[in-house]
């Protein structure tokens, strides 16, 4: 190692970024608690995105100026890898909640495991999953649940296919077929958009025809928590891939040096794997 590790000069993006995050969070709180601040929140979010754009633009420029060496590349790889690990743990908390509810909490409410208290509160409660009849009558459960073999299966096919198309795009980039890479990347992003559209349809159906809502007891809660945060991650992944598409079209990336693309691909595959877990444990089982 030759001492070529690049230490960036002073930058205004970190401080502006935390200010933007602060504005967004405070106005989100104002919106939730007092019902005002939605506009500021939107502006805050726009500010966060703008700062991210400008910050990453600096990084891209530095990279294209050749300021980064192989060691810097490894820093980015470790950084992205551990970031994805943190995301895994974020979803692990939600999956953990789902398993806890299904294995322990709901059966215990039915008196299993010698837990007497629930039987005194709600003697008529019968455990089931999906939980159609929550213990208290003040909370009305879903009327019907979604079949995994309709829209969710379609979405599974979309996402799994998109991982394949993304890999083809990546291989094409590595071989130097830039137009091929661009086309398969466009296909990947379109599959992601299709996924989000189908999920939107599914949410509409859930709310309007199935009675699956956030307020429909623990089934609706876990359903929207897991699929909602996954959908948010698909959105982020699709935006990231769109940026990569722009960079491919602008002629960025070498055949053997394109970690920005790879990082976006790692993220996309991670989102795909989470979906497989969701499909199995939220929809099928």
């Amino acid at each position: 190692m030759s001492g070529s590790y690049y230490v960036p000069p002073q930058s205004k993006w970190p401080a502006l970024g935390s200010l933007a995050v602060g504005v967004m969070m405070v106005s989100l709180g104002m919106q939730l608690v007092h019902g005002i601040g939605g506009l500021v929140m939107t502006l805050g979010m726009a500010a966060v995105l703008t700062v991210m754009w400008l910050w990453f633009r600096d990084v891209v420029r530095e990279s294209r100026q050749g300021l980064y060496d192989a060691q810097m590349d490894r820093s980015f790889r470790w950084g992205m890898g551990w970031f994805i690990f943190s995301e895994v743990m974020f979803f692990a908390a939600f999956f953990g909640a789902l398993f806890y509810v299904r294995v322990f909490a709901v059966p215990w409410l039915d008196g299993e495991g010698a837990k007497g208290v629930a039987a005194l509160l709600w003697p008529d409660f019968t455990a089931s999953w999906p939980l159609m009849n929550p213990p208290s009558e003040s909370i009305s459960g879903p009327r019907e649940v979604l079949s995994p073999w309709q829209l969710p299966l379609v979405n599974t096919i979309f996402l799994v296919t998109s991982s394949v198309t993304l890999t083809i795009a990546h291989e094409a980039l590595k071989e130097g077929y830039r137009n091929t890479a661009r086309n398969w990347l466009i296909g990947t992003i379109l599959l992601g958009v299709c996924f989000l559209v189908v999920q939107g349809i599914e949410y509409y159906e859930a709310y309007h025809h199935y009675g699956i809502t956030l307020q429909a007891g623990i089934y609706g809660s876990t359903f929207f928590l897991l699929t909602g945060f996954h959908g948010a991650h698909v959105t982020i992944g699709a935006i990231t891939l769109s940026v990569m598409l722009m960079r491919v079209m602008k002629g960025h990336f070498d055949r053997d040096d394109h970690f920005g693309f790879e990082a976006a691909a790692w993220y996309w595959h991670f989102v795909d794997v989470v979906w497989i877990g969701l499909f199995i444990f939220v929809y099928v089982l």
């Binding site: 939730l32 974020f90 979803f91 692990a92 908390a93 939600f94 909640a97 806890y100 509810v101 322990f104 909490a105 709901v106 215990w108 409410l109 629930a118 509160l121 939980l131 929550p134 213990p135 208290s136 003040s138 909370i139 956030l214 307020q215 007891g217 623990i218 089934y219 609706g220 809660s221 876990t222 929207f224 928590l225």
Partner: peptide, 24 residues
């Protein structure tokens, strides 16, 4: 994750930590 579930319970009527809705 856990404070997000709190946020949803407080502001959106979910039942993660509410036994009446099947949570715990």
């Amino acid at each position: 994750g856990v404070i997000t579930m709190m946020l949803l319970d407080i502001n959106f009527g979910t039942s993660f930590f509410n036994a009446a809705g099947g949570g715990d």
